[in-house]
Structures are given as C-alpha cells and as structure tokens.
Nucleic acid binder design. Structure first.
Lengths: 214, 214
DNA sequence: ATTAGTTCTAGTCAATTTGACTATAACTAA
DNA sequence: TTAGTTATAGTCAAATTGACTAGAACTAAT
C-alpha cells in the first residue's frame, strides 16, 4: 500500500491519497483493492513487495516498510490467504509518475468506499500506524521532495494528524531536530515572503529483514 | 519467543529470560533455537503461535503479539522459509509452569551463544522493540503478576532499559498514569517498610488481526 | 511609489514536565 | 531501644510546551 500527498479537491491543502486497483475477477470482482500479488521462491519479502508495486502501479517508492502479516481464516471467501503487507511513502515527483488507468486510480485515504477482502481495515491500521510514527519519529520527510519548507512539513503533519498546529511553535520544534539541515536557498514564486528551504539528512530506519537479494 | 523475568544468578535482581529448544535434527542439529512450527490451514497466525508455544514449552501466555515476518532468502540452508514471529510476555507464575527438560531450557536474553538459523538477530530485534515499547506504553505490567509494588515495576524498567532509575521520580511518573490503580493492600513479609500493592487496569492493546477462530 | 495583505521568522512569558535532591514514615533485625 | 533500610512525599531549578506578540520580507492592489 502506498501513501502520497495530493492537494484536496475542495480546500487545495495537501491530503493523503493511496492508489487502488480494480479487481477483474472473482471474488469481489470490480471492487477496488490494494495492489499485491504472490511471493515467489527467489525473492525476499521486500523485493516481492517492490516488484508487485512496480508491476501494478509503475511506482518505485524510496520508503518501503513492513506493516503487518494478516492471516485470519476468513479473509478471502474462496481460500485461506496470508498477506504480508508492506507500506510505502512516495514523494510527489514519484507519485506523479504512477500509471493511472481504468483499473488503477488514486483515492483519498480518509474517504474510501467498500473495498475487496479486509483491505479497508488494513488501510485503517496503516493510517493509525502512520499517525503514531509521525508523532515520534522522522517519517514525514519521505512524503516530501529533497528540499522543502517548514510550512510544507507542517502541512504534512496537519494532514496526517488531522489538526492544525501553531506555525511558530512547530517551527521551533522542527529546528531543534538535528536531522533537519538549513540550506541557503529560498522557495521563490510564492505570493508572499519566500520561505527558506531545508533538507532531511536522516536515514530511512531500516527494517530488520532488509538485507534483500545478496 | 517468550520473555519472562527471573532473578539473575549473580545479583539476584530480576532480568529477562527466554526459553529455547534444542534442535534434534539438521540443519543446526543440537543448537538452541526459538520454539516454533508450521502454520496449518485451520488456524489463525496467533492461534498457531499459541499452539506452538504450548506444544513445545507448555506455556499459555496472557500477552501475545506479532513481532515481524522474516522472509530473507537464506535464513535456512536447506529450504526457503518465511517465519511470522510472535512474542509473548509471561507473568512469573506462568513462567514457573514451563516444562524444562534436556531439550528445553531458559537462558538470559542478554547472554546468548550461537543459535540456529537467524534466531539470534530475531531476539536482538525483539529486545529492541521491547525497549521501545517500554519507553512509551504500558507493557511492563504483563511481566508482573496481578498485584505488584511500584519498586517491582521499576525493577522491570531497569532490567529492560539496563539503567538505574530514581525511585522517587519513577514513582511520581507511574502514579500519574491512570491505568495504575492503588489497592488497600500492602506486601508483607519483606525486611523493611511494607510497600503498597497496585493493579494494572489497562487492556493488552489488541493486534489488528486478533479476531481468532470465530 | 505607496499601502494593504499575507506569510515567514524570532522572541516573550506562564504553565507544565523533568531531574536531582532532601526529608520523613514505617518497618525489621540486632 | 536503636541502627539500618525501604517507602513515600515534597522541594527546587532546569528544560520543555502552548499561547501569544511583533517585526521582517515579500506580492498585489491602489
């Protein structure tokens, strides 16, 4: 499952979106579902997740982490399926490259209708995890490009946590984290005072199993 | 994998221990390994973890949570194995019931020799997660019995975080959490002033997949 | 050119939390 | 009765947080 920022149609402020694929066969034919597919014998879990994302949506996300292994008995009406779910955060430039078609479309993460299987509850769990990671951790930057303004970081927090934050206090906290590096550049072209650009220098926080194909 | 508190042989203070089973066949014959076994078609992941624990160690832990799904290509020299690992915290009364034998023995979690497969690194990852959960969250109480003193809680924190904590300040923080309930009883039989007993009223924090066999 | 409007940014100040420490209460063992 | 030890409450300064003020720096309208 993939999270990316896109401007909301109504307010224009950035909100969370995820791409879904339409099922073309039973069960749940023509319902929307998370992209995915089987694990082969010659790839690690993470490699399989990457490959499935690429094949279904064309995306190659920079941040990919294991979410959870779902293995309830009745997740699929036809057979017993164990899904080891990965989640990705993609930067706006990456997200723009996603193939969109009749059977692949982006949806607002907080406005989903009925989905195939238990995918709705999987997404709800991922949203909960995302909010938790955001509260303590440096994950927001993977939804932004290499350079960003502090106001953009704040908008990410506001979108995910769904509440407004005081700009001055937020800036003070972010500037106190050593992983955020001030650059000498400013974002030009805005309507008001040009904000300074910053850069994230931290590392993604590797998964324990991340040693992919050696 | 199972964590329990036991007094250290040297200092007598409580430390983390885990039970391991000796492998009786190749690969890694006669090395110690985490208990585990295959998933059958008719049980959820959590049920399978419970059953495997019961069959190998006789334990029925009250706290059981998914740790991570390990799926690297070379975890086993003979075949490709995906392990969905669960971890449990057991109370001292439960831990005392564990079958110990020639092929099942308890080890100090921080003093392990060579283990079968990648089980050493799995345990290291679990220890890291345990420390993280301990720092923010109410997980320590699952290593204690129903009633406990604040000094016992502090000893759990000290064992897991591996540093000493100021008794007075620790007490202040714990007493500020609403999930800790003061009782009218005191622990008798100690050598000094009898400490008050407390009770944990919070819930285990359910897994997303916890709806076991319906 | 001036002004109004907006965002960016730095700073103040009180309230809250944290860390280090002191003091007293309550028990056991000598 | 006293010494020793743990339990518990409290103090105080340092650090952090939340609410707020104010000036700086830009664009767009007049």
């Amino acid at each position: 499952m993939i999270f990316a920022l896109r401007p909301s149609e109504s307010s224009g402020r950035p909100t969370l979106w995820i791409p879904l694929v339409r099922r073309i066969r039973a069960p749940f034919k023509s319902l929307w579902a998370l992209p995915g597919g089987p694990l082969t014998h010659s790839e690690s879990l993470q490699d399989a997740a990457s490959r499935n994302l690429r094949e279904t949506t064309g995306l190659a996300p920079s941040y990919l982490e294991q979410l959870y292994a779902f293995g309830g008995l009745h997740r699929s009406p036809t057979q017993r399926i164990v899904s080891i779910v990965y989640w990705a955060l993609v930067q706006p430039t990456e997200a723009a490259l996603a193939d969109e078609s009749e059977n692949v479309r982006w949806f607002r993460a907080d406005r989903l209708g009925e989905l195939a299987f238990d995918h709705k509850s999987i997404i709800d769990y991922a949203l909960w995890r995302l909010r938790n990671k955001m509260a303590y951790g440096s994950i927001a930057y993977h939804l932004l490009g290499e350079y960003f303004t502090l106001a953009q970081v704040r908008e990410v927090y506001e979108a995910v946590l769904d509440r407004e934050l005081d700009p001055a206090n937020f800036r003070r906290q972010i500037k106190a984290t050593p992983e955020i590096e001030e650059t000498d550049d400013y974002l030009q072209g805005g309507k008001h005072r040009p904000p300074r650009l910053y850069r994230f220098t931290g590392r993604p926080g590797l998964d324990p199993d991340n040693r992919s194909t050696p």
